[in-house]
Design a protein around this nucleic acid. Structure first.
Length: 569
RNA sequence: CGGGGCGUAGCGCAGCCUGGUUAGCGCGCCUGCCUUGGGAGCAGGAGGUCGUAGGUUCGAAUCCUACCGCCCCGACCA
């Protein structure tokens, strides 16, 4: 592409709307234009980067035996009512009525539509397994879109759906997708990890997330130094503590703690460690109050609580709501004699003679013991894991890191096929629901994640497989016939070799061209300037390592052809 | 939705507190000269319903009210 013929509006200054690095650089490099919050037009350069990701995804999905289809964005509410999700999905599902007053929605995901296709056309085990995928625009009315393409409301996603005869075969399909995802993100040149994850609103029995490791990640992941264990923080299993053998239970005491409400101030006042105290957090689970007991220094993992209670929504109660539910002012609430449902983190079950709130203003209790002084409904792993905890798999040392979720795979089982009566006959003539899996990749998010992981102070540093152009030719002598002829002939030759190339043929000063080439992150920069006139050489520079070499045109073409060929294989 | 911030030229900002005639600056854009290996220089020029609506006032970008939009923190998720 010639720069003079393209829409490539680079910016010297960063628009005020952008905070994170990928968003800033994408705006500066002319990737896209915001239409409204979380909704973007993709300009040629941004679209080209997206297409590179799509190409890799498509190749690997096809290699894994999946077939591409394309499903509609507008979907009838009826279908969603069949699966039960028209109610369950929540406000993220954008709903509207068409001119005939029919309830409709914009597809945030396509389990219903693809299941509807399957039940119409596939009735025999002989046609299974089957895996259908699409690369399509999704709309999710996110509560808070942010960071440009990182969390848009409208975004490009690859979603695949597998259909199998048995649970075991479904696991084979799942594994095949897992492996395909590893290949995809590896080919994209990303540093990533697959982690055990919570399956959230999509549902299903187990799932993995693919996380690109980056500072601006919205998720925290935990992984083991010693073994393969890696999980989303919200899912990471805390190893149950050993309870003390035959502990001596001291007598319960009531102690005065005037005005001491927070864990830290109570501990300071009583001169104890937070570890000696059990705190109670009141949550509203779908509106109903639940008291959650945790050791004083631990943090609750809300996702674990939500899963334990089977609630669709859990929210921390306000001080007023705590008082309304318990009659005790916030800060003095305790489990002994509590009037609400109680659940406890497993750590609490291993503690003895601890401190708690006294269920009375200005009082706490000392030497409290579970089962002797109060009972709870359930004991479970409810807290957030820390780096103090051992690896649940091997006992090794754990580390936390930030990540961006670029892919998520789920084993769904028969959740959708059963509710939507998508069945086939097995080899014995029995009717059975399909065993399903679903597999997503946030294509536009991959581009953002790649930039989060590959940039410097001068701009983007695209991994070659994702770069819209492998090379940029800077013609530094627009008004010089020889220089221009050389630049033009290199451009022609590279095009013939199939190396995607940008020719900077603008009448700009060299500095501007260098700056833009760096900003755009094109992996190889070819400079044709006065050294060509003097010595007949052109310059080849690698964006990533800055290594610069001078050579003649023939050598340069051979060198570039080689690296590009290697990268695309 | 709760908390915080912001809306003045295509982009980045000043002016607002303490109201006063043609609303400024830098970048970008247009014309000419000049320059050409890291976002040059000079000269000239175009471009603004000061987010919207109402109010206060002789007079509003500036003060007041309401609304709209955008960004950041939280719940959501590819």
């Amino acid at each position: 592409m010639r720069y003079t013929q393209s829409l490539l509006p680079t910016l010297k200054e960063t628009p005020a709307e952008a905070e994170v690095i990928s968003h800033r650089l994408m705006l500066r490099a002319g990737f896209m234009k915001k239409l409204t919050s979380g909704v973007y037009s993709y300009l040629p350069y941004g679209l080209a980067a997206i297409r590179r990701v799509e190409d890799i995804v498509r190749e690997e999905m096809n290699r894994a035996g999946a077939q591409e289809i394309l499903m509609p964005m507008v979907q009838p509410a009826d279908l969603w009512e069949e699966s039960g999700r028209y109610n369950d999905y929540g406000p993220e599902l954008l709903r509207f009525k068409d001119r005939h007053d029919r309830e409709s929605c914009l597809g945030p995901t396509h389990e219903e539509v693809v299941t509807d296709i399957m039940r119409r056309f596939v009735h025999s085990y002989r046609n299974l397994p089957l895996n259908l995928y699409q690369i399509q625009t999704k709309f999710r009315d996110e509560i808070r879109p942010r960071f440009g393409l990182m969390r848009g409301r409208e975004f490009i996603m690859k979603d695949a759906y597998s259909f199998d005869v048995t649970d075991q075969e479904a696991e084979v399909s799942y594994r095949r997708m897992y492996d395909a995802y590893v290949r995809i993100f590896t080919r994209c040149g990303l540093k990533f990890r697959a982690v055990e994850a919570d399956s959230g609103a999509i549902g299903g029995s187990f799932s993995h997330e693919f996380m690109v490791l980056a500072e601006n990640g919205e998720d925290t992941i935990v992984f083991c130094h010693n073994c393969d264990y890696a999980a989303n923080l919200e899912k990471a299993i805390v190893v149950a503590p050993q309870p003390a053998e035959s502990p001596e239970l001291a007598e319960l005491e009531k102690i005065e703690t005037p005005g001491k409400r927070k864990v830290a101030t109570v501990c300071e006042f009583l001169e104890i460690e937070p570890k000696a105290l059990v705190k109670i957090l009141v949550y509203l689970a779908d509106g109903a109050p639940v008291g959650v007991l945790l050791r004083g220094d631990h943090d609750l993992e809300e996702v674990k609580l939500k899963n334990l209670l089977g609630a669709t929504d859990v929210m921390m109660a306000s001080d007023q709501e705590v008082f309304d539910a318990t009659g005790v002012p916030s800060g003095y609430l305790g489990p002994v004699g509590a009037s609400i449902r109680l659940v406890a983190d497993q750590q609490v079950a291993a503690m003895n003679n601890f401190y708690t709130g006294g269920n009375e203003k200005n009082f706490h209790l000392k030497n409290v013991n579970l089962n002797r002084d109060f009972k709870v409904e359930t004991i479970a792993d409810l807290r957030q894991i820390t780096t103090e905890d051992p690896c649940p798999s091997c006992g090794g040392k754990l580390e936390l890191t930030e990540g961006i979720e670029v892919g998520h795979i789920f084993k769904l089982g028969d959740k959708y096929s059963k509710s939507m009566q998508a069945v086939f006959q097995d080899s014995e003539g029995q009717e059975k629901p399909f065993i399903m899996g679903c597999y997503g990749i946030g294509v536009s998010r991959v581009v953002a994640a790649a930039i989060e992981q590959n940039y410097d102070e001068n701009g983007i540093i695209f991994p070659l497989p994702l770069a819209p152009y492998a090379a940029v030719i800077l013609n530094l002598g627009i008004n010089d016939e020889k220089i221009t002829a050389m630049a033009e002939s290199l451009y022609e030759d590279l095009r013939e070799l199939g190396v995607p190339t940008l020719l900077d043929d603008r009448d700009e000063r060299p500095g501007a061209k260098f700056k833009d080439a760096d900003l755009l992150g094109i992996p190889y920069r070819i400079t044709v300037g006065k050294r060509f006139l003097k010595d007949g050489v052109v310059e080849l520079r690698s964006r990533r390592d800055g290594v610069t070499e001078e050579m003649n045109a023939g050598d340069l073409l051979a060198a570039l052809n080689k690296v590009v060929a290697e990268a695309t294989n």
